[in-house]
Design a protein around this nucleic acid. Structure first.
Lengths: 186, 186
DNA sequence: ATGGGCATGTAAGCGGTTACATGATTAT
DNA sequence: ATAATCATGTAACCGCTTACATGCCCAT
């Protein structure tokens, strides 16, 4: 349930109703996420309430339909952290890069755990990259098709970009935590 | 029907049975395409036969199950070229980059049309990029969250990578066709 | 004998998109 | 008048993944 966890992440900041959640997610079109559909949002909220992750409070309004204000429960908060800190080392599809979805909420996780996740992601991406680089040699030798050759090249570039980006993020996170330790030791 | 068009692309080279198509696609894990599932492949072949895009010939084998050999029909070839050369300028989701799926089969298209498609893709990506760059400024000013900032940065890097890669491909395609014109004029 | 490769499929369920359905308020 | 914004949902369909189901051949 991927949409559900994104919604939990939004509700971590404050209770909200469906339409507000939609607007908030539409305002950050960064990780290739288009605006959330009604047909996905409202059923997800209903399911999450059934699961006990959120509670609904109907707020009557003078004008136009009532707002349904959703709040996180303790179970919902637990689910959110399980998802955010969970181990993906054995996850399939190394090219999917789920990390981006969690990245938007990593501020809720302590830097130590973030560093663990970053190290794991970097290793996954690096493995994928070496595989592709080996494959690129074979393709170039066997296949005279410019387009297929460039397709493999695209894959390699993407993986390199991910690795470099992850390493930069890693550097920034450690740099923002180390000074604290240094200050403590001073 | 996206899987169907990939299958049509494979059948453009030679008739094949399901298992062979699967193996061929699994051997090129470039554009983020994992191996094709049985649960997707076989129903797709059945649908395509119903659509009249392919015909089935059962090839009995002494050992183990019969192969079902599929051949493109004229309608199937037509559908393939419509898909490959079709106009995506008004397509939604500029971050989806469907171009990669077609890229694997662009050798079947004449270079003139390829150049048109490349120019259109470059414009789409560039537009998306300028939008993100404007957005990045706003985020940096408003939001003190390192992770959200880096998320926008990731989006920008991806779009830049796509633009650069498309332009390199464009250069290679024009360089491979221009010499022909030059030779003609000589 | 165990597992992997060859070869075909079906079924259940999740995720996502599009379209349908309603209705008030507010801005142009 | 018309469109956009606010606000909630449902229904149909498509795509994809996972697991189920079968069975032979070959190598270790």
């Amino acid at each position: 349930m991927s949409v559900a966890h994104t919604i939990l992440g939004v509700l971590m900041d404050a209770p909200a109703h469906g339409y507000a959640i939609k607007k908030q997610l539409a305002g950050a079109p960064t990780a290739g996420e288009g605006p959330l559909n009604d047909g996905q949002l409202y059923p997800a909220l209903a399911r999450m309430e059934r699961e006990g992750w959120i509670t609904k409070e109907v707020v009557e309004q003078r004008r136009s339909p009532s707002k349904h204000l959703y709040r996180l429960t303790d179970a919902g908060r637990g689910e959110f952290f399980d998802w955010l800190a969970g181990d993906r080392s054995r996850a399939p599809h190394p090219w999917k890069f789920d990390f981006l979805q969690r990245c938007a909420f990593l501020r809720h996780l302590d830097p130590g755990r973030v560093e663990l996740q970053l190290a794991a992601e970097i290793e996954r991406v690096s493995e994928c990259l070496t595989g592709l680089e080996r494959f690129a040699g074979e393709v170039a030798a066997r296949d005279p098709d410019l387009y297929r050759e460039m397709l493999v090249d695209y894959g390699i570039r993407i993986q390199r970009l991910r690795r470099d980006w992850l390493e930069e993020l890693q550097g920034r996170v450690t740099r923002s935590t180390l000074p604290v330790a240094a200050a403590r030791n001073a």
